[in-house]
Design a binder for these strands. Sequence first.
DNA 1: TTAATATGTTCGACATCGCCGAACGATGTT
DNA 2: AACATCGTTCGGCGATGTCGAACATATTAA
Lengths: 259, 259
Amino acid sequence: MIQSVERAAHILGVLGSGTPRLGVTEIAEQVGLAKPTVHGLLRTLEAHDLVAQDPGTGKYSLGPGVLQLGNAYLDGSELRARSLRWAESLAQRAGEAVWVATLSGSRVIVLHHEFRPDNTVQILEVGAAIPWNACALGHAIVAHLPEGQRTRALAGDLARLTGQTKTTRAGLSRVLAKVRQRGYAIEDQEATVGDAGIAAPILSRNDVVAGAIGVVGAAGRLLVPGIRDEMVRAVTEAARAVSREMGAGRGGVVLSAFT
Amino acid sequence: MIQSVERAAHILGVLGSGTPRLGVTEIAEQVGLAKPTVHGLLRTLEAHDLVAQDPGTGKYSLGPGVLQLGNAYLDGSELRARSLRWAESLAQRAGEAVWVATLSGSRVIVLHHEFRPDNTVQILEVGAAIPWNACALGHAIVAHLPEGQRTRALAGDLARLTGQTKTTRAGLSRVLAKVRQRGYAIEDQEATVGDAGIAAPILSRNDVVAGAIGVVGAAGRLLVPGIRDEMVRAVTEAARAVSREMGAGRGGVVLSAFT
DNA sequence: TTAATATGTTCGACATCGCCGAACGATGTT
DNA sequence: AACATCGTTCGGCGATGTCGAACATATTAA
């Protein structure tokens, strides 16, 4: 593992999370390196537009290059491309917003956001990062990860976003077992107060999890008895459809316990 | 300039432009390095989710981490935050789509896209990268760059997108002089056949160019006499409003020749 | 105004870290 | 079944990045 690249990535991470504008000294403290070392890394990243320096204050922030890369990632994402069609029909059928997401570290990244099909103003959440333990999409993905990665995810930090967020390893692993058994996940106001989510995993070749698709909306609309089951059916059918396009086997979400 | 970080950034750039999925050997060829060297860099980037490897084919692509960083960049962008309000009112006034962009290397990156205020379906172009020489936004930015950077931009590669794209250095520098004199740029089907653009620079503290704002739409609507001048006025007024919020002097787009 | 403390930046010597030629195992092809 | 090509591992040489100390500038305090 190449040291300087790792350090550069670490710096990008620090600039990306929380405070958007940091000085060399602050960054050096946060990553635990000498000031001149950080300076050299920053200058190199700046030369490629991955970070930018405010000419006035001298402080550093992320640069436009990372946005360009992010866009290129979306353009090349097979998961996103294949789910566009199904996300739209799922949104129509459910009458709710639809998110497609994938796992990155301990967070779930939204790859596609199909707006709820009414004409209200909604903000695009593509690129948003949500702790996996706080949303149905994350539960659906992690539950279907191979055991090694799953326990590693459980061992990581579990953020708390609302009073409902599940943050105990025992509770979460019980939830995950249920998700794995049922093939879908339901979350009630664990990420945002008032909002609930229903999600199912998207599998790819060899039945490895590529991401998840699900609906997000007011808990009062999604979770009422009757509606709820209809939502679950719509979500799991959409997930299965995308999975088949991604090359997964016919088995749907049922994973062998031995892999 | 740190060598390995530079090489890593180069690899990210290669993965981001054009073919989304490349093998180690192909990447090594494109960046001119030995195969094991590239392998090490890729493994490090992969550990931070900046690249991802297809488990089946072994080929590499960009990872979800870059999307997360791109989103963080947008969240922290002062230019974007300050132009949101004015972009919306400009879109209303002009009845056209509005783009806000900044320069990254030889490309212009779209930071904000306010849709044309009719209810047609439009695709979000945030994150898109356009060669600076092929759009009004790019002309507006580069024209107001300090001379050193401007000549460097002119010396770089000038892409051709349509038959109308200006690609000669002499022609472009004449165009830029006119843009600098007038304070706005007009482009007619140089980026996309059928589409035109009108843009003006956004200045920041000390009157350094931070980006540009402009309208983009069918040439048949934007460039008809009468309408055209009204568009120019709306765009330059919006640009000046954002510039003032960014801390630029009252001088508007008129730059001193001595700075 | 002056002094003091912060900042971002430059320099250079030591030794660590990363580079690449060569070899390996696994796939898929002829 | 022989071949070609892929991604990957190994290890020794040497270039490369690291960090302590010193610098110039900006901001704050007295």
